[in-house]
């Protein structure tokens, strides 16, 4: 049986930070393969290198060496503009503190990735409506983030991350700023998205979330012990 192309393939990824005489190796050869449809958790304490791995996965940072294939295409050699386009099309970012634009309505917030993807204006609104309906916020289009609760804000952010139908969602501690009940609600939403075929990579330091993941990448001292 032919295996589908992995969404993400990391081969011997290393990252070294140079600051003058001092050079620190943060990632010491990471090998990861993420197949489509998985719900992946990257766990690790602070200082384990999981943030750096997140930045590399999210194309915000480039590895010092190693190969990163996204949808079967090498991205570790791309220039800034190509990386920006890849981020726009293939990665849906979700942040711990939501990072919504406070002066835009939630509908406009969802449209931002479409704006950078040059989607025609006429198509943006129906797409935003569809996504906000999916996260059950279709009735609050004109509201601004400050009028929403934390859980609602994160749902808007999830809708935004899906705007350009990315290859995977990259969530950085998405429940870190939320209470337990709301966290459960958000995790449920991730699960239902995952059920409908969305690949999700979530970075967290919270071991209690481990049970949610199909695949766990444990980071320790710049290395993985993938299970």
């Amino acid at each position: 049986m032919e295996q589908p192309t992995p969404i993400v393939r990391l081969e011997n990824i290393r990252k070294t930070y140079d600051s003058g005489d001092l050079s620190v190796e943060v990632l010491k050869g990471i090998n990861v393969v993420v197949r489509p449809g998985l719900f992946v958790g990257i766990l690790g304490t602070s200082g384990s290198g999981k943030s750096t791995l997140l930045n590399i996965l999210g194309l915000l940072d480039v590895p010092s060496s190693g190969i990163y294939e996204l949808d079967g295409i090498r991205v570790d050699t791309m220039n800034d503009d190509q990386l920006a386009a890849e981020r726009n099309r293939k990665i849906g970012f979700i942040f711990q503190s939501f990072n919504l634009f406070p002066h835009l309505t939630i509908e406009q917030n969802v449209e931002v990735p479409m704006v950078y993807g040059r989607m025609p204006r006429r198509q943006r609104r129906p797409r935003a409506l569809e996504l906000l309906d999916m996260v059950r916020l279709g009735h609050r289009l004109g509201h601004r983030p400050s009028q929403l609760s934390g859980g609602e804000c994160q749902r808007v952010a999830i809708a935004r991350s899906l705007a350009n139908s990315p290859s995977f969602l990259l969530a950085d501690e998405p429940t870190g700023n939320l209470d337990e009940a709301t966290s459960d609600e958000i995790m449920k939403l991730f699960h239902s998205l995952n059920q409908s075929g969305v690949t999700i990579i979530m970075v967290t330091h919270n071991p209690s979330l481990e049970s949610h993941f199909d695949m766990v990448i444990r980071m320790r001292d710049g290395r993985t012990d993938a299970l």
């Binding site: 800034d80 503009d81 726009n88 990072n99 950078y116």
Partner: peptide, 16 residues
């Protein structure tokens, strides 16, 4: 700067 960072993450190019 946070807005700028978010925009970059969402796919804005430096030139944008």
């Amino acid at each position: 700067r946070k807005e700028i960072g978010t925009r970059l993450a969402l796919g804005a190019q430096k030139s944008d």
